[in-house]
Design a protein around this nucleic acid. Structure first.
Lengths: 337, 337
DNA sequence: CTGAAAGCGCTTACAG
DNA sequence: CTGAAAGCGCTTACAG
């Protein structure tokens, strides 16, 4: 039933080592023997046992992709499937498999990562999140595991290569865009700033406002839950003067703000404008379609994977981080005033 | 640097086989030697090499999760991350890893599955899709790979165990619910019926309409692209009499319909009602929040994983399929008339 | 209760 | 250009 390299060798009347070399398409094997061996492999239905190969080559040809959700709801954020697709498409093209860990709990993540690193199950790790004081990062650095971060490292920033957007600039640009449209009273709805991305975005917002000599007093930090959105919206619409535009930092946040606004009988963008980040399909099909910053999640994922594979191939190469540019996509949720 | 079972054995003055038995917590090893060996493992920082173990035990302790997207946009459907989470949570609890394949192309999927099966990289496969004439399913059956399907098999239904909702009943119930609310003129927006789920839902709809002696002439098949949504909506609103409610079969479809309706200045649910399926966070935060059928994706995923692991543990056990019940969740997108 | 030995299915110096 | 041998790091009958 199970056919191994020995069976092939026997039937083709060569040594197992020769069969192995044929599989690897070793240049010094004659075409003749290659053909002969390959024919036998076909006949016997031989397929190499990858486990055995991994054991001897000491390489797992698989990459661990670690994702942490701060909240249960983050699971449906369209950023992740798109980034993950970029990662797995690239890894597949390089003949790597991906094994993924996704959890809310820091401890679960730590355990899983420890297990896969010590068990030699992965050649490298992609970290899809970045926040302060993360034991997993510490562990990976100490064990010299090749890693790359999609996002911006808070610690060990000299040792971790990363791929990211320039989030300060992205938000700076977006704010300038709003100002150019005539908006002066802008409300900013961010998120928990223990994540680097949110710190950066907030900073970009403040920079642009300061430069334009505008006040930035309406800064909120939403959590994913919907009632918090309603609460924020209710606060905002009672402000006098009322902000003319809401900046949200992802599509899920934008959607819940819109819901809350509709509930208060406000229409978008006639009564109030709203903009967001990501530009997944969700932005296109929302009502109305969202003006948004395209952060190119697929591209981010792809570059991240590429960068890690490069690290594995050329461990001595110069470290360098990659910034994927962002672009503003105009749709119908934001009007000129 | 690298510490193996031999190093531990030497330092603990026992045989490697004893160390191995300590790792496995073999009952016949005295507590004394266990303690001694474990102490040395700690001191040396020993961690078992999982690759080696897998090779000798002929088990990979990993499950392949295969997903096929009919369209690029399907990638952000919130059904999948929730189902996947259910799967990976369960697998982790049983000490299995998951390795995933996600692609649009049938050929890519087939190749990847072939590679992981032949390479002994997986102990079993979870199929997250079901449609006609799928070479991957054929391959898995022929190679006697343990599989389970989340969805309903079209072929080999005697050989494939599956976990599913009763989609006929789910849609039948929903249609009855709408009829009870006073809706008589109902438009149904389904999808490509080469997927089993869509056939079943459509059938449930027709059954309920027939039973109530209502006509069901407004049946559309949307694709994921937004312009098709606008087209369908434009057709529907010109009908005379105009349908009072739209049935959509997932949240993405619902969102794009709502967008298209808003563009034509119709308000939901005052001018027209809309209902959907899934009940992820998206339904809650949409504007207005969607009345929807909860198909319990997390539970579906969990049961699927559980069922596969059971198959692996007890290969001789009776096959049985699992149906996860659905529930209607009332929100604000559908009114009584 | 523990050890010596064989073996899982490959790859890769080392010879020739 | 190809083969014989050793070895990757474990587990598991088989002895004792």
């Amino acid at each position: 039933m199970k056919v191994t390299i020995k069976d092939v060798a026997r039937k083709a009347k060569v040594a197992p080592s020769t069969v192995s070399r044929v599989i690897a398409d070793h240049p010094k094997i004659t075409q003749e023997t290659k053909d002969k061996v390959r024919k036998v492999m076909k006949e016997l239905g031989y397929h190499p046992n990858l486990l055995a190969r991994k054991l001897v080559t000491q390489s797992s040809q698989t990459i661990g992709v670690i994702r942490r959700m701060v909240s249960e709801e983050m699971i449906i954020d369209p950023f992740f499937p798109e980034a993950l697709q970029g990662i797995s498409d690239y890894l597949r093209s390089e003949n790597y498999s991906t094994i993924s860990v996704n959890a809310v709990s820091k401890d679960v993540i730590f355990e899983e990562v420890e297990k896969m690193v010590h068990g030699k199950n992965v050649d490298g790790i992609i970290l899809l999140y970045s926040h302060e004081d993360d034991p997993t990062v510490k562990f990976l650095i100490e064990n010299k595991v090749p890693i790359i971060m999609l996002g911006k490292p808070t610690e060990y920033s000299d040792e971790i290569m990363y791929v990211n957007n320039d989030n300060v600039k992205a938000m700076y640009d977006m704010t300038q865009y709003l100002i150019a449209l005539g908006h002066k009273n802008i409300a900013y709805i961010g998120r928990d700033s223990s994540f680097e991305v949110h710190k950066d975005r907030e900073q970009g917002f403040k920079m642009a406002m300061m430069e334009a000599n505008l006040e930035f007093k309406h800064i909120y930090h939403s959590v994913y839950a919907t009632n918090s959105a309603q609460q924020i919206v209710d606060e905002i619409i009672q402000l006098n003067p009322r902000p003319t535009v809401l900046i949200t930092i992802d599509e899920l946040s934008a959607m819940s703000m819109m819901s809350a606004l509709y509930k208060r009988k406000l229409s978008i963008p006639d009564d109030i404008s709203i903009i967001s980040f990501n530009n997944s399909l969700l932005s296109k099909i929302s009502s109305p379609p969202l003006t948004t910053v395209d952060i190119h999640p697929y591209q981010l994922g792809l570059e991240t994977a590429k960068s890690l594979i490069n690290q594995l191939k050329y461990p001595e190469a110069m470290r360098h981080n990659i910034l994927v540019p962002t672009t503003i996509v105009e749709r119908e949720s934001c009007k000129k005033i």
